[in-house]
């Protein structure tokens, strides 16, 4: 039972991550490979606030989301200045710089040793949320809230402008909207919710180290997004489901652990290549990836 709950908790965390990646990548077609950087920044900020301050969950969550969101300004600045592949490269650079800082700035982040003993979050300031059941409830509620929030976003006027930016920025400018502002919003929201995922992860696992927030993790999140599909809510949620549940299925098949990791990656790779040819909008997505 606890094993299943653990999987559901991780699934909820990945739903947050993939949904927030869907906002810039799926709606506005800004292919950023640095979702894991925001995830990591969120996790490290949370570790600091949970270890040093005794704050209720909502307050910690808001602080972490705002701080992570502010870090996203770097990326949205890049998205305004740079187009296409250059933007992809800039986000890659951002991801690598964040990882290098987490890894090498040992006085603050404890580098490769990681930070251990991160306390659980406190609901309403008193009840310390402990145990797997508590986290199961918390993450499920949060991921449902986020699904509801993001579900309306595409149909809202904001989503309309983002979709327009995806097609043609010049037109958006010529009708009096500043694409830079909307990119700022999109990245801020995306980073903030990735940060929230970081908070949940850090306090649930109670130990973090930089290797959870690598470029590979960013690529993994994008893989989940593209497998599921971009542009709607179903797609990212389904993508998260695939990447979280598939390894467990492989485990049941009885592959040795050393092989399972590589084999699973090969399966993701195959799915990606085949999808790009047969169904570039992903298994459940609405929009095709464009240039």
């Amino acid at each position: 039972m606890e094993y299943i709950l653990h999987i559901v908790i991780m699934l909820n965390i990945y739903i947050l991550l993939v949904l927030s990646a869907n906002l810039p990548v799926g709606l506005a077609n800004l292919l950023s490979i640095c979702q894991a950087a925001f995830y990591g920044i969120g996790a490290y900020f949370s570790a600091y606030f949970l270890l040093q301050w005794n704050l209720p969950f909502v307050v910690v969550a808001l602080i972490v989301m705002c701080l992570t969101g502010l870090c996203s300004l770097v990326v949205s600045f890049a998205s305004v200045k740079l187009k296409g592949d250059y933007f992809v490269l800039a986000t890659l650079a951002f991801q690598m710089i964040v990882f290098t800082i987490l890894y090498n700035w040992t006085e603050v982040t404890r580098g490769p040793y990681g930070i251990s003993g991160i306390p659980s979050v406190k609901l309403f300031g008193i009840i310390s949320l402990s145990g797997i059941y508590g986290y199961f409830a918390l993450t499920t509620v949060l991921s449902l809230i986020v699904i509801l929030l993001f579900g309306n976003l595409k149909k809202s006027p904001f989503g309309r402008v983002l979709t327009a930016i995806r097609s043609d920025e010049l037109t958006v400018l010529s009708i009096g909207r500043n694409p830079a502002r909307f990119k700022n919003y999109a990245f801020f929201i995306s980073a903030a919710f990735s940060g929230l995922a970081g908070l949940l992860y850090a306090s649930y696992i109670s130990y973090i180290d930089p290797t959870s927030f690598t470029l590979d993790e960013s690529i993994f999140i994008l893989t989940a997004l593209f497998i599921g599909g971009i542009g709607n809510i179903k797609g990212p949620v389904f993508g998260a489901l695939v990447v979280v549940v598939l390894p467990e299925i492989l485990r049941f098949v009885g592959l040795p652990d050393a092989m399972a990791a590589n084999l699973r990656q090969i399966i993701y790779g195959l799915i990606l290549v085949l999808l790009m040819y047969f169904k570039p909008q992903g298994l459940m997505g609405e929009l095709k990836i464009k240039n």
Binding site: S156, R160, V161, T163, G176, A186
Partner: peptide, 29 residues
């Protein structure tokens, strides 16, 4: 250049309006 391809005609028209209210994310909340 024509219409924005991934938006409906109505959305294209609405987007051309000079009234930008509601375009802040989550404004509907």
């Amino acid at each position: 250049k024509g219409l924005l391809p991934h938006l409906t005609l109505l959305d294209n028209m609405k987007l051309c309006s000079n009234d930008t209210s509601g375009e802040f994310p989550f404004a509907y909340l």
